[in-house]
Design a protein around this nucleic acid. Sequence first.
DNA 1: CGATCTGTTGATATCCTTCAATTTTGGTGG
DNA 2: CCACCAAAATTGAAGGATATCAACAGATCG
Lengths: 264, 264
Amino acid sequence: MVGENAQNALIAKLSHFGQLKVEDVDLLVALCAKEESFAPRTNISTEGEPPRSDFVLTSGMACRYRLMPNGTRQLLTFLIPGDFCDLRSFLLRSMDHSIGTILETRIAAIGRQTVTHLFAHHPRIAAALRWSAMQEEAMLRERIVSLGRRNAHGRVAHLLCELVWRQMANGSSDNHAIRLPLTQTDLADALGLTSVHVNRVLQEFRRDRLITLARQRLKLLDVPKLQGIAEFNRDYLHLDDTPIEVSRYLGQLENDELSARKEL
Amino acid sequence: MVGENAQNALIAKLSHFGQLKVEDVDLLVALCAKEESFAPRTNISTEGEPPRSDFVLTSGMACRYRLMPNGTRQLLTFLIPGDFCDLRSFLLRSMDHSIGTILETRIAAIGRQTVTHLFAHHPRIAAALRWSAMQEEAMLRERIVSLGRRNAHGRVAHLLCELVWRQMANGSSDNHAIRLPLTQTDLADALGLTSVHVNRVLQEFRRDRLITLARQRLKLLDVPKLQGIAEFNRDYLHLDDTPIEVSRYLGQLENDELSARKEL
DNA sequence: CGATCTGTTGATATCCTTCAATTTTGGTGG
DNA sequence: CCACCAAAATTGAAGGATATCAACAGATCG
């Protein structure tokens, strides 16, 4: 059951880039077959160590983070089911940040050869994975904007919106409500704030009937107002469909491959 | 002359990933042949518009940035000669940020087919370009760390170190001195500060003999102390050589290609 | 050689942090 | 089911880092 949801998350997410063919879906589902499990609050990957192979996060939640010399922590991104992590990282000698779990989390490792094969012979999937990497990069940029130019209210509202929109995109949000297993300290470490201040902001949001948040359930009550506070514009998530040019290009590649096969 | 420097920048930068073969260098030099020029403080690429094709920045300086509804600006990254920009961006319908010049800037556009060809038939160059993209992503993460967890002194010191190290890597820094054509407002917009505050920090740095900065020349006088203030660790720039495994992999690919050619 | 952009300075305001205590929550074993 | 414990959330008071505002000086450039 969990496995099924997990696959759905990956498929649901990549479908925002473009329609996948049945064989693509089958392939992606097969990729997620052998899972590995990590306890809550443990490291999947550690700063300074060689990168692990690519993986898909199939259930749970994790984050990329850095520890500072004085012990403070900066969360960089959150990883949710359907996220395909660290494409290309094998090019690096060592990780420049860590990846740690929030909850019990399952990942499906994707071998280097598999990735290479996907990129060489499955252009539609390859393009979708590249798109997914672009999306993660865009989220990094958006976080910079948040930290640089939004006040605490804006930052909190923006992060909540982002998490909800991402979970809508991977099919695990229901009416702007999601599971949010983060502590206020986690939020603070992601937003460059203190947990005390995050607490006060959240309480204001609750008082103003913008959200409810209790027992790891977040619900956005007043989406327009929150978007206003956050200056949230979903465009950076690039959830719209593929540019026509790319569709044509992929169709072309497919034809090439078909004719190549006939020749064999 | 400028062109030569420009090529050197690209070659110098990519050489930090791994030794390039003569034919790779020739190919990369040829890529930078047809340049296009942009006046200072103009846009190369604009938020909301379709992405332009990939390009190499061959001379000058530019930045990625976002404009906020209230008119404030957040600079995301600086682009310097040798930077290869927007691999994969053709997958997106529209830009989520703008790219603007600081100085008069030249770029060499790389057509989509060229990029595709490089990735298909020049694995060493392809790997180097992917590495370069990873490096840019790592710089985004590092900026998040700066904005989230470093105070103004740390942020300024870190950015100055980053710019100097990057220019060392592309061969345009001499003894920790670089050309820095940024206004204090530019720095402030990159660091999530006000120009007034950046000014005061810079003056302190000057008073403490940590830097000199005048007439667009920056020199780091006390590198260890600056690194300490910045908590700067160059590891995230991944300037060391390639993991052995990757070298082997590339060597393998090369052999495959050679034997394939023989068969023809 | 004047106009304009950039850098500099000082006074005041504010957002957010820090510190420290208290309450609530959630989990665990008896 | 309750007692207990640790972690998380909450609250208040005080301090500090950075912003804001406004004025002026200095640089740069046609």
